[in-house]
Design a protein around this nucleic acid. Sequence first.
DNA 1: AGCATCCATGACTTCTACTCATCGATGTAT
DNA 2: ATACATCGATGAGTAGAAGTCATGGATGCT
Lengths: 304, 304
Amino acid sequence: MLDYQHLAILREVDRSGSVTAAAERLNVSQSALSHMIRKVEERYGVKLWLKQGRGLRFTQAGEYLLGLAQRVLPQMEHAERVLTDFAQGRRGALRAGMECHPCQRWLMRLTPRYLAAWPDVDLDVRTAFRFDGVAALLGHEIDLLITPDPVDLPELLFTPVIDYELVLVVHEAHPLARRDWATPPDLLDEVLITVPVGVERLDIYTQFLVPGQCRPRQHRTAETTDLMLQLVAARRGVSVLPDWLVREEGAQLPIRAVRLGKGGINKSINLGVRRGEEGIAYIAGFLSLAQELEVKADPSADWS
Amino acid sequence: MLDYQHLAILREVDRSGSVTAAAERLNVSQSALSHMIRKVEERYGVKLWLKQGRGLRFTQAGEYLLGLAQRVLPQMEHAERVLTDFAQGRRGALRAGMECHPCQRWLMRLTPRYLAAWPDVDLDVRTAFRFDGVAALLGHEIDLLITPDPVDLPELLFTPVIDYELVLVVHEAHPLARRDWATPPDLLDEVLITVPVGVERLDIYTQFLVPGQCRPRQHRTAETTDLMLQLVAARRGVSVLPDWLVREEGAQLPIRAVRLGKGGINKSINLGVRRGEEGIAYIAGFLSLAQELEVKADPSADWS
DNA sequence: AGCATCCATGACTTCTACTCATCGATGTAT
DNA sequence: ATACATCGATGAGTAGAAGTCATGGATGCT
């Protein structure tokens, strides 16, 4: 077996110029190096170096192995550093999955900061909205679930990172714009614009329209939230979005946000990880960055 | 120490899908693999795989090392094959040095055959004419010396591969063309064309002109033998070359070869190697190919 | 000529690496 | 549902590898 060690010996002998010096640098006896190389030589039936006067001269086979050593050893040594990086959680791949559009928007605010803070961590984002996030987390398909619906399982740990309110977005000249809050019947004559997912995944249906036994006149979809806001600003309909998202992206538009029902629809985004992994440095780092973000978002909450 | 072995284990576990299967394929016990990996894990403080049900799941660190293994192991395995090639003399670098121009011409006839017969041998040709070939051979700068002047040393072994005669080349209309042989005074009024080396290395001087105490009217040089022949054909002068070389390259030219002195200047090309290395396969192969070439060249020796 | 230093080698020792036996966990067949 | 088969992990014991020490031959330097 040609081994890491043998390559290291060859490289060091080449660097130091003698077996004795190499042995000293590698913290073994000169005899040990001689024995090791001798073994390789016997194994393959080829000399790696020859005594030349008081020193050595590499044979062609020795030169060849020396070249291999110089190519391979740096890779191995780098791998050792990478391993300790993994051990200390400085390196990894954080695979995040999301179950809702607002979650994705929220994540996008965090990513630049996270990538800057954890340069050796790959952030993979799974934006498949149809999958079961909890199952993906349990099955190790993802390492982090960003979801509005935490579940209570012993294997998982959920942390809320932001509370928000789902609001109705209307044009500023819309009759509803002056109202304190909207009722389900208010939407009977409206065009409702949502992201393109099944109604069973839309809170506006499950928590508002269905309980109020109402349906909008028309339901259409838009792929992105800024398109949704543009459509509302163009009086093509009304939409439902997180309050902070309207605040951030709709500041310059002629739109208003209206509470849905008297108490509003209150949601939160939660980060789910497998229990036991919350301490891994780059995951813990994500959670703490997420909580910093929440704090910063809070002060401007009274946007009305 | 991250080792060849560990990488091999990871790769085999990945291939076989289980530690037990991998152990069997690697001819060790399942326990041994477990222990080895455990040791690496303890060394670096990072798990490489986790029990998942009855099987395993690689961690990110494990995946990383697996990737390393797939890059590095093929190189190591190739190196092992190369070593056995070296051991059997199927592979090497044959560094040939030459001390004379005819030697180089002669070598060129052999190279295509040699390269075809020994595909894994690199043939390096040192065409530095100023160096001391014997010293280069003794100092392991070259492995093969092609020279007209063998020396008798216990460390070296010389083998003649071709005997030839150094002849004067003149235009077919030149008065000397009808002569059986030329004398030194015949050159007193000639332009002598030789390769550009010092006169002390030119046999025409050391063995003919100097003993005869004559000098040509003019001495000029040409870089290549075919240029020399072209110049002779154009009546720009006379030249001195090996008979076989004139035969091969000058067949279509209006030139004649004339013996130098009554007995001619007889030379031979010898191959010198360090004693003990004549048995190395790719060196022995060179010598035997060289002798075949000699035999083939012989029949047409009476070219006149 | 004498000395210092190089690498190779044999004998001895230490400790590593492996096997064996067993355990708990998990998936499967009855 | 329960027994069984099979997986990987682990502790103890052992065979063998790897390392040290002491020494010898060769070479270069003073």
